[in-house]
Each structure stands twice: as C-alpha cells, then as structure tokens.
C-alpha cells in the first residue's frame, strides 16, 4: 500500500474563518436538538471494525458533544457516535437547517476560492495522477458523492466525460462549471460507474460499512473510489480527545482510524491502493487549542512552546504525514475484477 506526502500552503483561516465558524457552531447548537434528538438503538459493535463496543478504550471512555455521544472503539480506535439516528432527519439537517444555510452563505462564500485552490484542485490532480496506473477507456463514467447529502443514492451525480478527465476536474472543484462534453444526472439505482469521488463526505454516513458496500456495488469491476476523510488517529484527535476540533457533530458522525478504515475497506471487498494523511493543519490546530487553554500532553506542550519556528513546525507536520498521523486522510480504493467473498 502506497502513501504520499504533499505540502500545500493551507492555513486555518483558509477553511475556517474564526468569526464565521463560531457563528456556525452557535447555530449548530440550536439545530441539533431539532434534527438529532430522535435517537435509534445504541450501537453494540463498532461500525468500522465490527468489534464489540463494550470493549472501549480506555474502558468507559465516552463523551458528549452537542448532545451526540461518542465512544472510542477499543479495538480499532475509531471514534463513533454511540447511537444511531434517523436517516431522513440527517438528510433534512443537511438540506434545510439554519446552520447549513449559514455555512453555505457565510463560510463557503468566504472560503470557496481557497478551498478550491488548496483542497479540491490538489484532490483532482491526485486522482488524475493515480489514473495513469489504470487502463480506463477515454470515456470514463464518474460519480461524485455530494457532501450535503448523507449517503443516499440520489446524492450521487454522474459525469460522463468524453474528454478524458479535465471535465470532471472542473465538476468536482466547482460543482457547476462544466464543459460541453459533460452531462450530469442522478445515478440510477442499478447503475454502475468507473470512478467514485468524495471529498469529506464519508464522515457524514451513519453507517460507514453500508457506505462502502454501496460504493462497491455501484462501481464497475476494476473501478476506483477516491475519497478524503477525517481520521481519529490524527495527532490532533489523539491529543485532544473530546476537545478535538475534528470531532464535530453532526458533520462527522464517525471518525475512522487509519487501521480500522483499512479493515473496513477490505471487508467491503476493496483493495487499499493508497492511504495517505496529507493534512497541513494539525500543528496549527494544536497551537490553537493551547491558546484556548485546552489540555495537551506535556510533550506536545513542550514542542509548541520551544520548537515554534516555522521550519520546526513544517518538519513536525512533515513527520505526521510520513507516519500517517495527520487527521486528514486521502484514500484510493480499487474494486478488483471479482468481488471478494
């Protein structure tokens, strides 16, 4: 399994302008009781690795944020919502809630340029580079998972690109700026595509195993699934636990671990071709946490206080990427010609 390191000039303000972000958090507090109060059964097993959740790590570790209780799986270290929620309510939250509307009008409008340049375009460049290893026909069928749709089939759109990949690049980055050779329509229930792509969509699924099963069912043999995800085994989440900025309900109902996601993908019948953690913000978020007085381990505290010059921070982030310890995961899965049994 391969991995990559990539250094991009992404800063916290590029994706999370503080005033607007705090406004979003305030609205979330108001919206969550409306959409997430109705809870289903408690999980007995980890939705990532299938191990019993009675085996928590450490025993009894659970925490509640915004009325949603999380547990950390003692087997694979994924952080998962303890209860299940009603799927239609999740969808309603992402399509109608005030907080999501605020996110689109206030945060997206202020960050879209930086997000496209520093997150989406590199994602597409990565995918285009990886496709060199595979023999696909010129006319690829590509489906993108829409982040505002929590894993429903209608949430995928299909792009047929006659002109190799440049068309779907613009589709993924802007969502609207499509070339003439591209058409978009809802994917049919039984339709299969060559490529699935998802930027930060997976964490919104309530059942990640179902999401990956669904993905493999809708891929042609030999198809590829490119996605990014926030991980529980990033240094920021490992350090801060319940205080982690990455544990953000309900945008992230589960955060898989590096190890757990590999096992989950294998169970679904995928080969993990690449699993990288090319995040750039872990050190910045830890510094932010320190300024806010959140509890950090003595080692990290010492590092932040005594090795704070720019080159040291870059080396720290570089080391996290090399050790797959950044919270931002980038994954390429391959559906083999025959589904594993």
């Amino acid at each position: 399994m391969e991995f990559s390191t990539v250094f991009l000039d992404v800063q916290e303000k590029d994706v999370r302008p503080m005033d607007e972000y705090n406004g979003y958090l305030d609205r979330l507090k108001q919206d969550i009781p409306n959409y997430y109060a109705e809870k289903g059964e408690s999980r007995m097993t980890c939705p990532v690795c299938n191990a019993s959740l009675s085996n928590m790590h450490p025993p009894g570790e659970e925490f509640t944020k915004n009325l949603i209780t999380y547990v950390k799986c003692g087997s694979c270290s994924s952080v998962v919502a303890k209860e299940k929620f009603v799927l239609s309510n999740i969808q309603a939250f992402f399509t109608e809630s005030e907080s999501r509307k605020y996110w689109m009008t206030e945060i997206w409008s202020k960050t879209s340029e930086a997000r496209i340049e520093k997150i989406y375009q590199p994602f597409v460049s990565w995918a285009q580079g990886r496709l060199l290893d595979y023999d696909f026909a010129e006319a690829l069928s590509v489906a993108e998972f829409l982040p505002n749709q929590p894993g429903l089939l209608e949430g995928w759109k299909r792009v047929r690109s006659k002109d190799n990949l440049s068309a779907f690049a613009s589709c993924v980055t802007t969502g609207t700026n499509l070339g003439e050779s591209v058409t978009i329509h809802s994917i049919e229930t039984n339709e299969k595509v060559d490529i699935l792509m998802s930027v930060d969509g997976l964490n919104r699924f309530e059942d990640p195993a179902r999401a990956l099963s669904w993905a493999i069912e809708h891929l042609n043999p030999g198809g590829l699934f490119f996605f990014t995800t926030t991980l529980s085994t990033g240094i920021e989440t490992l350090e801060l636990g319940a205080d982690s900025y990455n544990v953000l309900p309900p945008d992230r109902l589960f955060l898989p671990s590096y190890e757990g996601l590999q096992a989950l993908a294998a169970r679904a019948g995928f080969e993990v071709v690449e699993f990288s953690t090319p995040g750039m913000l872990d050190a910045a978020l830890l510094r932010h946490a320190e300024k806010e007085g959140r509890k950090l381990s003595p080692t990290i505290q010492y590092f932040l206080n005594n090795r704070s010059v720019e080159n040291d921070v870059k080396e720290f982030q570089s080391t996290l990427q090399k050790l797959r310890l950044s919270a931002f995961g980038r994954v390429l899965l391959h559906k083999k010609d025959c589904k594993k049994t």
């Binding site: 990559s4 990539v6 991009l8 000039d9 090399k322």
Partner: peptide
C-alpha cells in the same frame, strides 16, 4: 516548490 512524495512499499 511544494512537492508530492509518493512512498512505495511493495
């Protein structure tokens, strides 16, 4: 320039 580094294991 920023570089992408791919690490191969197999």
């Amino acid at each position: 320039p920023s570089e992408e580094i791919i690490y191969f294991d197999k």
